[in-house]
């Protein structure tokens, strides 16, 4: 339909709130994701070409392709996005981001959705691992891997990893003593405050 109004409703090319399925777009959810993605992501620009899915490392094991995930975010389909295993199968390889012809940066979008999912209380092995990882880095400033394995996998993981651990110790590649930065308390407090503020923005 050709409109005679001076204000065109749709033109080809980049238009922030009207791309594909423009009538179904939910800008609230997109804005939230963009806020978490450091404003680097321009989700509305996605034209559903599927280049991201074509190059995706782990698409075989995902229940929703990166292309579909972006579409669901455009539409504001919260539940579908947050319940998708795509978030946790993504290995942050940045192939999608480097190939996207529209500058959508799907890796950054997925990263941002992960933050929201954790804030929404989604809990699984991946969120558990990611949270322990960050907690431990916050605690000392430097990661101590044996502690990460122990906190994540318990005694069983420690036993399973023991043969490799011993080999590493023998080669001087693993110390039983963790390293720390000079002022880990201040580091930890600053990041805890940042995490809290980040959560409040949601």
């Amino acid at each position: 339909m050709v409109t005679k109004n001076k204000k065109k409703k749709f033109v080809f090319g980049l238009k922030q709130d009207r791309q594909l399925d423009g009538d179904k777009m939910n800008s609230d959810f997109m804005q939230k994701v963009i806020a978490e993605g450091g404003k680097g992501a321009s989700i509305a620009a996605c034209m559903q070409c599927g280049t991201c899915s074509g190059g995706c490392t782990n698409i075989d094991v995902m229940d929703m392709s990166p292309r579909t995930l972006i579409l669901m975010i455009q539409r504001g389909e919260w539940e579908k996005v947050l319940q998708s295993n795509t978030l946790w199968m993504c290995s942050s390889c940045y192939i999608c981001t480097s190939r996207c012809p529209r500058g959508v940066r799907p890796s950054d979008v997925i990263e941002a959705v992960k933050v929201i999912a954790i804030a929404q209380g989604i809990h699984n092995d991946s969120t558990k691992f990611n949270q322990i990882f960050v907690d431990l880095v916050q605690k000392r400033g430097i990661l101590f891997e044996p502690e990460l394995m122990h906190r994540y996998g318990g005694l069983q993981a420690m036993i399973e990893q023991a043969p490799l651990g011993i080999q590493l110790v023998l080669r001087g590649k693993m110390s039983p003593f963790p390293e720390t930065i000079k002022n880990p308390q201040q580091f930890n407090q600053a990041l805890q405050k940042a995490k809290k503020n980040d959560g409040n923005n949601d």
């Binding site: 978490e36 993605g37 450091g38 942050s92 990263e111 941002a112 992960k114 933050v115 954790i118 990611n130 949270q131 990882f133 960050v134 880095v137 916050q138 990041l191 940042a194 995490k195 503020n197 980040d198 959560g199």
Partner: peptide, 8 residues
């Protein structure tokens, strides 16, 4: 880290 909190 950035997938737990972007700012952190």
């Amino acid at each position: 880290a950035a997938s737990v909190s972007h700012d952190v």
